[in-house]
Each structure stands twice: as C-alpha cells, then as structure tokens.
C-alpha cells in the first residue's frame, strides 16, 4: 500500500509547501479577477487571518496526532518532519494579515497603524503573539535548536500562549454569532488538552 510515508521526504516537503501557498494563490487569483465583491480589503484581511489560524492549528495538531493516532501499520511519526514548515506558514499568514490591514485598510498610514495597535484592544492582545511568532520563526532552524539547547523547547512552548491570544483576538470580534469563536475555542481545547494530560501524568 502506498502511504504518505513511502513518499520521499523531500517530495512531502514540497507537498506541504504547496498546501501552504495555495491559499495565497487562491486569494490572489480571486483578487485579480475581481471576484471579491464590494470590499476586497476586508475580505482579504479576514481570509489571511483565518489561514494563519488554520496553520497554527495544523502545527499544534502534529504532536497529538503523532502520539495518539495509530491504526494497524499506519502511523504518523513522519508528520514531525513537517511541523516547522506548518508553523512558518502560520507566521507567514499572520505577517500577510497585518500587511494587508496596513496597506489595504489603512492606506499605508503608519501613524494610524501605530495608533490602532494600541487603541484597539482586540489588536493589542495579539502583540505578544506576533512578537512570539516572529521569535519562534527566527529560532526555528536546526542551528538555533542546537545553540539554544534545552531553552529551545521552553521558548517554543509559548506557541500555546499564541493560540490562546489568537482566540481572544477572535472572541473580541464576536458580533452577531458565537459560531467561529466557539468552534475555534473547541479546536484549541482539543489541541491543548493532551498536553495538559501528559504534563499531569509526568508530575
């Protein structure tokens, strides 16, 4: 049986990369073909924010899936190799999300941008998350891993905080419906619960 495991790792990397750029290609295509309606700026900002969140979920899902899901010969240990790229795509879409907001909504007005960062609580809460994501991105290389040793793991556990802050960001934007906030909340809980349990067992 051909499974993803039997595909050479380099090919799999390219596959994950392709999955990562498809959302960007899709929204670009929809934009240049004028399919985004009356307010493409808002549509784009939302779209990029949502994909940042999806890649955050994906990178957080790797460990629980690897450790908990096994079916006969099928295992998911190989997913581990791709976690870094998933995380980097989260950072990539967050940066695009912010850039789209700055360029398309604020018209590259940096003074207003700075003002919005501090005056809008739902944006302000994401600041630690953005800083952390950049730090995680910068330290995601093999070299950095070696250099930071044990501290690397401690630093990269802050991704849990990033997830929680991203959720607060979404929750603070709830208007007429809790659907998104509840759905994302449940996903984050499911992703973090195994970690809590593992931590509990260890101590």
């Amino acid at each position: 049986m051909v499974t993803l495991v039997s595909i050479p790792v380099l090919w799999r990397r390219w596959l994950v990369f392709l999955v990562g750029v498809v959302p960007l290609l899709w929204i670009t295509y929809r934009t240049v073909t004028h399919q985004l309606g009356a307010d493409p700026a808002q549509t784009i900002v939302l779209f990029l924010g949502e994909w940042a969140l999806y890649f955050l979920f994906a990178s957080l899902a790797v460990t629980p899936i690897r450790r908990l899901v096994r079916w006969r010969h099928v295992h998911f240990r190989w997913l581990q190799t791709h976690r870094r790229m998933l995380g980097l795509f989260c950072l990539f879409y967050v940066l695009l999300h912010i850039t789209a907001y700055l360029v398309f909504i604020l018209g590259l007005d940096f003074a207003r941008f700075g003002q919005q960062l501090v005056e809008r609580p739902y944006i302000l809460v994401t600041m630690p998350a953005v800083v952390l994501l950049i730090a995680l991105g910068v330290t995601s290389t093999q070299g950095m891993m070696r250099r930071l040793g044990k501290r690397w793991l401690t630093l990269h556990k802050s991704i849990y905080l990033v997830a929680l802050l991203a959720w607060v960001h979404v929750f603070m934007q709830v208007r007429s419906s809790y659907v998104d906030a509840v759905l994302y909340g449940v996903i984050i809980l499911l992703l973090l619960a195994p970690r809590v349990i593992w931590w509990w067992r260890k101590h």
């Binding site: 307010d39 700026a41 784009i44 398309f104 007005d109 809008r120 609580p121 739902y122």
Partner: peptide, 23 residues
C-alpha cells in the same frame, strides 16, 4: 467618538481600491 473596534475619524468609501484605498 470612536467605537472600541473602529476609529470613526475616517471611512473607506466603497468601492475602494486596494493599493490606494478610498479613505
């Protein structure tokens, strides 16, 4: 008077271009 989520000082008049938003 701002809304906690949106500054009300200016607005984007639709349709608004992407690279030069109609602010």
């Amino acid at each position: 008077v701002d809304h906690p989520r949106w500054s009300q000082a200016s607005e984007r008049r639709l349709p608004s271009g992407l690279f030069r938003p109609n602010i």
